[in-house]
Design a protein around this nucleic acid. Sequence first.
DNA 1: TCTGGGGTCCTAGGACCC
DNA 2: TCTGGGGTCCTAGGACCC
Length: 399
Amino acid sequence: LLAARTILHVDMDAFYASVEQLDHPEWRGRPVIVGADPAGGRGRGVVAACSYEARAFGIRSALPIGQAWRLCPEGVFVRPRFPRYAELSERVFAILRRYTDLVEPLSIDEAFVDLTGSVRLFGPAEEIGREVKHSLRAELGLPASVGVAPNKFLAKIASELGKPDGLVVVPVGGEGEFLKPLPLGRLWGVGPKTEAKLRGIGLRTIEDLARLSREELRAMLGDAGEHLWELARGIDRRPVEPDSAAKSVGAETTFEADTGDAELVRCTLLSLADRVASRLRAQGLVAGGVTLKFRDEDFRTVTRSAGLPRPTDLAEDLYAKALVLLARVGWKGKLVRLVGITAVRLSSRGQGTKGQLELFGPAADAERLRRLAGTVDEIRKRFGSSAISRAALVVRKNG
DNA sequence: TCTGGGGTCCTAGGACCC
DNA sequence: TCTGGGGTCCTAGGACCC
């Protein structure tokens, strides 16, 4: 028999916007919208996060920034400062790790904590939840919502229901009542497509879904259907898993205006390759393959991927392969909206590739490039990311 | 009003092997 | 002249999450 678990889900409220209000006291109490430049309503891109004051105007994350601007032109529109958010994120997770090592970050501002073994030492989970919220507020100045439940799914739903600044405990045995009235979209893995499909056969709430048999759901949605059958009954056996290794590292960008300029596309790919490679080096990873992402003016997205001759953390290698992949995308006659590069099949550097230095041949060239890249990383760390750049990109920018 | 950027996981088809 | 079944790996696309 499996012992009952106690899982905490901690979710920072309007995280990026809360950080901006923390760092800019004059913005507290005002609608703050973090995202793309609205450019007087003509901006490209979307809202990354917004304060609760902004939500009162109907603004939501993922809303096109121009729409947000029209809804609330008096709002405070700011560009995201990811390094600052990452810094505070680390401090959030450090507070959670005071209770246990079983902390699984879900994103920059969200985590599961398995408190099953901690309650003996620290007291009831509800008390720990209260304490966590208090520490986040007192030490970091940031609000959070917390859910306490016997599993991940229920804990996540609970924290969502408590937002903002809430603490919701799902009583053991009360899972059914708790879930029944909720719309299907609350189920983990049910997005717009699946919800529409289920609505198409007359289902609206989790209670409706729970009336279907395992077999019926399986026939309609495959393995995911069986998973939903369990979730609808509050069953979720997935463990809290700390430190999972990254499977891919990517960077992509949408052009300010759709472009037909092949040289601009290549320069952009080089700069994306630079970003991806330096993040690989920072994490001690090498890529065994590359995926190129390409989106045209009609919003049609294609990807092309291929393995690399040897694992690498060099921009030159990623870029060279990206050019080969680009040639495999038929984009004649179409303008380009977005390009992206993702490093895949990651492994940690040093395993296998270590050994004697090679003095000649491609491996030696790679070693020289690695040292150069290491020096560039160092300069950027000390003087900022714009302190040094590739001549190919500088010429482009100024020419 | 067009629709970001960072990811994960699943599926389906084809190649290839035994 | 017809044509197994299982397994794995790779690629491309798509759904989903924050």
